[in-house]
């Protein structure tokens, strides 16, 4: 993806399982991030009072304040809420939706492959998108020309409507990031679009078919049930 060197990110990890915390810490350190592990919710909240973190990785079930409660506290009390990622064993769909709607920016189920964790963390840490001067954006074998609003897959141009192009670009720019339906709607169709909810699904389906967003092309479009969508780049 974008080949530029990223600045180190300061990450707070809420995790009571030492082995898992160790794995996460190790994985992120490899990616050049600095991590701090907290075993209890209250301890993390106290730390958030005095120092700033760029990103939070939260387990749901921990002693004291749960990960979900920490997210609520952060939303209510911090001026600039850092992006947060739920990393938990709770695998039920309802839990995923509950976590995301409570304010988590992403939700990862344990056990997690280090490569996936790195990709998700990087997606969250990437706050702004440096606009390429050339107007071309490259994502794997996909190349977007943002001025002409055209897209090529392995050099083959693919015809998209304006909305489909906007939607595809949004997905690619937010690679590995869970996008809420409302967010996508607003980004592509503007505020308060009076459209049937199926419209988004139809467009997603069209983009997926036309751009062949399939694992064969190194990407996978994942629906997050009753929440939204996420585009993932597969590790080659």
């Amino acid at each position: 993806m974008q080949g530029q060197k990223r600045a180190a990110v300061r990450i707070a990890i809420l995790e009571d399982d030492v082995a898992l915390a160790g794995l996460v810490e190790m994985t992120l350190a490899e990616a050049g991030h600095s991590c701090e592990v907290f075993g209890e919710g209250q301890v993390l909240v106290r730390a958030l009072h005095r120092s700033t973190y760029d990103l939070l990785i939260l387990d749901w079930n921990v002693p004291g304040l749960s990960g979900l409660e920490v997210i609520s506290w952060v939303r209510d009390n911090l001026e600039i809420a850092p992006p947060s990622l739920m990393l938990t064993s709770r695998s039920a769909e309802e839990d995923i939706v509950a976590g995301l709607t409570a304010g988590a920016d992403d939700y990862v189920i344990k056990p997690v492959a280090p490569v996936v964790l790195k990709a998700r963390i990087n997606a969250l840490a990437r706050r702004a998108y440096p606009a390429a001067l050339s107007g071309f954006e490259h994502y794997g074998s996909y190349c977007f020309d943002t001025r002409a609003e055209t897209v090529e897959l392995s050099g083959e141009p693919i015809a998209l409507t304006a909305k489909e192009f906007a939607l595809a670009l949004l997905l690619f720019r937010n690679m590995h990031r869970a996008l809420a339906r409302a967010y996508i709607f607003e980004a592509v169709w503007g505020r308060n679009p009076n459209l049937p909810t199926r419209t988004l699904d139809v467009h997603i389906s069209n983009v997926r078919t036309k751009l062949h967003l399939r694992p064969d092309n190194g990407v996978k479009l994942v629906p997050i049930y009753s929440y939204g969508y996420r585009l993932e780049a597969l590790a080659s």
């Binding site: 399982d17 898992l20 160790g22 695998s91 344990k110 056990p111």
Partner: peptide, 12 residues
Amino acid sequence: HDMRSPQASILA
């Protein structure tokens, strides 16, 4: 959760 967690820890 309670049964999955230890497995995740083993893998970790």
